[in-house]
Design a binder for these strands. Structure first.
Length: 345
DNA sequence: AACTCGGGGAG
DNA sequence: CTCCCAGAGTT
C-alpha cells in the first residue's frame, strides 16, 4: 500500500457514513441499492431501500412478484425503467438457477447494469478488483489529476476510467475499501463548487489548479416546454386512467390524455420537470369514453393506493379527489337519483 | 454521439 | 429559477 491509500483509507475508516447497504455484502441487496442510486441521491434512497428489502428480501421473492407491485414500491423514485430492469434481472437470475452471478462480465450482463453498477456490485459484494466511476468518483479523479476534459464527453469518460483503474490497489479487499472511500470523499468533502480542501486527507496528491471549476461538463441541453391536457373522468367510485405505451413502457398509470376542450377552464393545473422537459399539466372534466382502449382502465378509488402512478399525476389525482370529497359533502347525491358521480368542475 | 428516461432534492 | 444526483438503454 502506498501513502495515498494509507491516508485515504485511514480517513474513510473514521468518516464513513452508516448506510444500510454498507451493512451487508448480500449481492442482491447491493444490486438493489445500486439500481436505486442511479441518478438518485443517497438521502432519497435510504427509505426506499429499507422498504424494498422488507417487501422483497431476496431474489426469488422479487422474481415472483407482480410487476404492478414492483412499480408501486418504486413510485416516487423516478426513472421507472430501473424498477423493470431490476425485476427482469431477478427473473434472469432465478431462471439461470438462482445463484447470483459472480464475475464482472456476468454481472454486467444483467438488465439495468452498466459499467458503473457492474463495478460497484463486483467490488462491494464480492471484493473483485474492479474500477467504478460514478459522479462522485469522476469529480474526485478530475480534480486529483486536474483533468479538464468534460467528464461527460467520450474522451473525458475514457480518461477518468483509465485513472480509476490505475489507482486501484492490487488486493481486492483493499480495492473495495478504496472505491468506497473515493466515493465517500466526493459525496461528503470533495463536493461540487468550492470544496473545503483544508480538510482533505489526500490534498498532498491533488493536482487541481482550480477545484471549483472541476469537473468540466458539456453544456446541458435546452429546456423543452411540453403541454399535457388530461381528462378527469369519475363514475361509480372509479376513475378512468391509462398507462403509457411504447418506449416509456407500461405499468405507470396516469390521467388520460384528451383533446383540449374548448371554452372550459382546467380544474387542476401544475408544472413539473422531467429530465430536460418542463411539463405544463392541465386537467379538464371530460365525458365518459365511448370505447376503452387496451391501455386504459377504470380503477376503483379504493385501489388507487396499490396502483403505480407517476408522482405528478398522483398529486393531481389526490388533490382532485379531495376536492370531490368536499363537493360531495356539500351537495350529497339525491337518493334514487342517477348513480353517476357528479363531475367536479 | 445524441437522446430519452413522463425524477426528485437542495440551494 | 438553477444544478446535481452511487447511470443505463436505445437509436
Amino acid at each position: 500500500m502506498n501513502e495515498f491509500s494509507d491516508s485515504l483509507l485511514a480517513w474513510f475508516a473514521g468518516a464513513a457514513r452508516d448506510l444500510p447497504w454498507r451493512r451487508t455484502r448480500d449481492p442482491y441487496a447491493i444490486l438493489v441499492s445500486e439500481l436505486m442510486l442511479q441518478q438518485t441521491q443517497v438521502t432519497t434512497v435510504i427509505d426506499y431501500f429499507e422498504r424494498w428489502m422488507k417487501r422483497f428480501p431476496d431474489v426469488r421473492t422479487l422474481a415472483d412478484a407482480a410487476e404492478a407491485n414492483v412499480l408501486r414500491m418504486w413510485e416516487g423514485l423516478g426513472y421507472y425503467a430501473r424498477a423493470r430492469h431490476l425485476h427482469r434481472a431477478a427473473k434472469a437470475i432465478v431462471q439461470a438457477g438462482g445463484g447470483f452471478p459472480r464475475t464482472l462480465d456476468e454481472i454486467r450482463a444483467l438488465p439495468g447494469v452498466g459499467p458503473y453498477t457492474a463495478g460497484a456490485v463486483a467490488s462491494f459484494a464480492f471484493g473483485i478488483r474492479a474500477p467504478m466511476v460514478d459522479a462522485n468518483i469522476a469529480r474526485v479523479i478530475a480534480r486529483l489529476r486536474n483533468i479538464r476534459e468534460p467528464i461527460d464527453s467520450s474522451a473525458g469518460r475514457k480518461l477518468i476510467w483509465q485513472q480509476a483503474a490505475s489507482m486501484l490497489p492490487t488486493d481486492g479487499e483493499q480495492a473495495r475499501a478504496h472505491n468506497g472511500a473515493l466515493m465517500e470523499l466526493g459525496a461528503t468533502l470533495c463536493k461540487p463548487g468550492e470544496p473545503p480542501c483544508r480538510h482533505c486527507p489526500v490534498k498532498r496528491w491533488c493536482r487541481a489548479k482550480d477545484p471549483a471549476t472541476l469537473p468540466a461538463k458539456e453544456p446541458r441541453r435546452a429546456m423543452i416546454e411540453l403541454e399535457e391536457n388530461c381528462g378527469w373522468i369519475l363514475q361509480h367510485g372509479r376513475v378512468f386512467l391509462e398507462t403509457s405505451n411504447g418506449s416509456r413502457g407500461p405499468g405507470m398509470w396516469r390521467l388520460p390524455v384528451i383533446a383540449v376542450p374548448a371554452r372550459r377552464s382546467p380544474i387542476h393545473e401544475s408544472h413539473y420537470p422531467v429530465t430536460h422537459h418542463r411539463v405544463h399539466l392541465r386537467v379538464f372534466p371530460a365525458p365518459r369514453p365511448a370505447r376503452i382502449r387496451k391501455n386504459q382502465r377504470w380503477i376503483e378509488i379504493a385501489r388507487l393506493s396499490e396502483t403505480a402512478m407517476t408522482a405528478p399525476h398522483r398529486r393531481a389525482l389526490t388533490s382532485l379527489l379531495d376536492l370531490d370529497g368536499v363537493r360531495r359533502k356539500l351537495v350529497p347525491p339525491r337518493a334514487g337519483g342517477s348513480r353517476r358521480v357528479p363531475v367536479v368542475r
